[in-house]
Simulated assay, not measured.
Amino acid sequence: MTASVDRSDDDPTEAPSAIADAAPAGVAHPRAIRTFVTRAGRTTLGQARALADLGPRFVLPYDPDTPDLVAACLRADGAGGPIHSKAVLEIGFGMGGATAHIAALMPDTLFIGCEVHEPGVGALLKLIGEQQLHNIRIVQHDAVQVLAHMIAPDSLDGIHIFFPDPWHKKRHHKRRLIQPPLVHELARRLKPGGYLHCATDWQPYAGQMLQVLGAEPLLANTAPDFAPRPAYRPETKFERRGLRLGHGVWDLVFRRVAAAAPPWPDRRARR
């Protein structure tokens, strides 16, 4: 899911689609609603070369018959390759600058990034080659579908969603990625104690994120409201430009609580 999801390097990206795919049975959400749009973008020669040379190794196919992608990746890496003790899913990595930065800081963690924007995939592959990174895998597909069909419950140590498309106009708010059905599915994929880290530069969206995340019974806020920017998340070019213009940036870091809660309580019982 991936654009509108991340504008981390000041390039248009694409965000995840159809929240309906991840919604539990009985939760209404029109299937036509998509949280990303496909934007035109030119793949550079370097990105195309990286796609051809490194894509076969680091880009994984979307395969609904792989119900536990994290376990499959960890097993494959353990077969003669580096062994990773943790796994983090990133939704919408844009041009991959933040992803590569964080992966270099945490070599023992496997990062699985979802992005549909081909220039962004090529750009991250280029960084992987230049920095000799071995702990990144990419799925070039709608992250909502990847989450629904390839990520097992209780399998992730963390989830990153940096600068999703805020969909500024009120009539487009239904397209925002952070909505209760998807947040519940994200929480279910986290191990107890695992974290969900979101960041946005649009204050109204930050407020909605805080409300939606705070209402999810499987998540607990790590701060009274918004969190300080964790040291591992770098300031992006887009973010620095916004700060120069007086825009704010809001980070939210929630953790999966150990005790499971009923996924969708019957509200009629409380009446």
Rank of each mutant, 00 (worst) to 15 (best):
T2P: 10
A3W: 06
A3H: 11
R7S: 12
E14I: 11
A15L: 11
S17Q: 10
S17P: 10
D21V: 14
D21Q: 13
V37A: 14
V37C: 04
R39W: 07
G41W: 08
G41N: 09
G46H: 13
P56T: 03
V70H: 04
L74P: 06
R75E: 15
D77T: 01
M95Y: 13
A100E: 09
H101R: 07
F111H: 07
G113W: 03
V121C: 13
L124D: 09
L124Q: 08
I128P: 09
H134T: 15
N135M: 06
V144L: 02
L147I: 12
H149S: 10
M150L: 09
A152Q: 12
D154M: 08
S155K: 04
L156N: 07
G158N: 02
H160L: 15
F162I: 12
P164C: 06
D165T: 06
D165H: 13
P166G: 04
W167P: 06
K169P: 03
H173L: 03
L177A: 10
Q179S: 05
P181C: 02
V183Y: 04
E185I: 00
L186E: 00
R189A: 12
K191M: 01
P192C: 08
P192V: 08
G194H: 02
L196S: 01
L196E: 03
P204A: 01
G207Q: 07
M209V: 14
L210W: 00
L210Q: 11
Q211L: 11
L213K: 00
E216G: 01
D225C: 07
F226T: 00
P234W: 08
E235T: 14
L243K: 15
L245P: 02
V249L: 08
F254P: 02
F254I: 02
R255G: 00
R256T: 05
P262A: 13
